[in-house]
Design a protein around this nucleic acid. Structure first.
Lengths: 183, 183
DNA sequence: TGTACATCAGTGAACGCGCGTTCACTGATGTAC
DNA sequence: TGTACATCAGTGAACGCGCGTTCACTGATGTAC
């Protein structure tokens, strides 16, 4: 493996660690040491890859949103449209599993509260959320498709956050079930 | 003013500052100095009022949820039930004004991402969210009232967070309008 | 009503710690001849 | 193919700063007589 490839792989491991840890624990709550340790490196190497910690948040946002798009539109949901797509995508989004895997949650939901505290990240977040909503609207029909996409994303993201915040697993499952069972 | 009353008033000012600043900037992002300055006191006095910063978060949660309940069920919404209540409460929750006043946002939405990082606060959050949903369900009818309450709260809270996270005011207004205009 | 003492809300300097960032250095990889 | 040198990804100690928390002290309020 050449030096350039090795460096590219290191960078990728750092971004993946960040996409996971920033979502699981938060941006401020994750230290550069934590991130580099998770990527199998030490602290000093960080600044050969990124200008600063905020630049990594930007990369982690893009990575996490790409993952969110795969979950919502690929992996079995490729051809679906309209109500059929809504049913399948919603069931996946609001699966109990989405509660437990803290490092893998929907980027739109999880970074919503992170991004206002890191102004440099807001433009990327905005572009990525808009992209998700555009893609949702493209699966729906009619002139109100975009508004319907915002309604769906709001409801799903809200339910995920409430369910994750709550202490009691029965309450968490109740929220998810309520939104899963009806539009 | 007696000493006891003075102390009680100081405590109240600290809690009010916390309810505002924790929502506007976040728990970790707000220092004890910021809080005490906002309350017109200095740092050292803090520990005569609270065991530690986490204890203040607990008090700020209760204060913020009480405010949320007033917004959703009082101040003109007293007698309303069913669709009439939903229309009025939703319009208020999703008003553009709710975007700007960062220190006054709905506690259920805003603390949802704060609370998982401060384990001691989760029990209070859970109790308070449940209390809001119970109150919403009591305004609705039928056996599915509680599920409907979770769906409404999820959607409203999700829309508020997305709208606040986003950089572009036009996008923010688009989210709010989409959810405001239809259930 | 006045005096002496006790109480206690609040002050502000100081402490310890974690964290983002810097930088001189190491050693493995790549290049020139 | 081998040798000498250059490059550069990564290391880890050190720095500076912000923040939560502590604590000796102050001065105004309250109490006893």
């Amino acid at each position: 493996m050449g030096r350039a490839e090795q460096k590219a792989e290191s960078r990728e491991r750092i971004v993946e660690a960040a996409a996971r840890l920033f979502r699981a624990r938060g941006f401020r709550e994750t230290s550069v040491d934590d991130l580099m340790g998770e990527a199998g490196l030490t602290r000093g190497a960080f600044y050969a890859h990124f200008e600063d910690k905020v630049a990594l948040l930007d990369a982690a946002l893009r990575e996490s949103f790409a993952e969110a798009r795969r979950g919502m539109f690929e992996r079995g949901l490729e051809g679906l449209r309209g109500a059929a797509w809504i049913d399948r995508a919603r069931a996946r989004y609001l699966a109990t599993r989405h509660l437990r895997e803290l490092g893998e949650g929907c980027a739109a939901a999880i970074f919503a509260r992170e991004v206002p505290r890191v102004p440099e990240a807001r433009a990327t977040y905005t572009a990525e959320v808009t992209r998700i909503v555009d893609a949702m609207a493209a699966r729906l029909d009619g002139p109100g498709a975009r508004a319907e996409a915002w309604r769906l994303l709001s409801q799903w993201a809200g339910a995920l956050m409430l369910a994750r915040a709550v202490d009691d697993p029965r309450v968490a499952r109740e929220v998810l079930a309520a939104v899963r069972d009806a539009g």
